[in-house]
Simulated scan of single mutants.
Amino acid sequence: MQDAREQFFQYLAKQKLRFTSQRAIIFDVFWNTQGHISPEELYRKTREQDRSIGQATVYRTLKLLSDAGIAREVDFGDGVARYEPYYGQSHHDHLICKECGKNVEVVDHRIEKLQEELASQHGFTLNEHSMYLYGYCAECSGK
């Protein structure tokens, strides 16, 4: 967490912005939340620690965290923006249930290799990508 915090602090300094106490709370809550969090969920959690934090501050700070490479927006196809820690995290893809919204982070090195080969065949060099696989989890497909 300390490296991510330092990265964020340095990014803010380059942008001539301050690392305020409100940004520190938002960073800490975001970084210490397991899984994927929406801006609204982050807003509710940060307000538990500091009632003066406004919704716009949370949205702006999430944007700054994304721009700094600390957070990444994920799209589960339900119209809700969610964020996950990105800095220092290993790459993974997502399996998403279209019924209940359950999501599972997965890594398959065979798929990663195929994606690199596919990109190479078309003259591309990959530097990042994301993959979302939509379907039904075992519980929902059994209904």
Rank of each mutant, 00 (worst) to 15 (best):
A4S: 15
Q10H: 05
Q10T: 07
Y11E: 01
L12V: 00
Q15K: 11
K16I: 01
R18T: 00
R18F: 01
F19M: 13
T20Y: 08
T20A: 01
S21P: 00
Q22S: 15
A24I: 02
A24C: 02
I25N: 04
Q34H: 10
G35C: 04
P39G: 13
P39V: 10
E40W: 14
E41A: 09
E41I: 02
Y43S: 05
K45P: 04
T46E: 05
D50N: 14
S52G: 01
I53K: 06
Q55R: 14
Q55K: 14
Y59L: 13
Y59W: 05
R60F: 06
T61N: 00
T61K: 03
A68G: 04
G69A: 02
G69F: 08
I70L: 01
A71P: 02
A71I: 09
E73F: 05
E73T: 07
V74G: 05
V74R: 12
D75M: 05
D75Q: 05
G77Q: 08
G77I: 07
G79K: 06
A81Q: 10
R82P: 03
R82D: 12
R82N: 07
E84A: 05
Y86G: 03
Y87V: 03
H91P: 08
H94T: 10
I96D: 10
I96A: 11
K98D: 11
K98L: 14
E99L: 06
E99M: 09
C100Y: 08
G101W: 06
N103I: 04
N103H: 14
V104K: 10
V106Q: 11
V106N: 06
D108W: 14
L114Q: 04
S120N: 07
S120Q: 12
Q121G: 15
G123Y: 06
S130T: 07
Y132L: 10
L133R: 11
L133F: 12
G135Q: 12
Y136I: 12
A138G: 12
E139Y: 09
S141A: 12
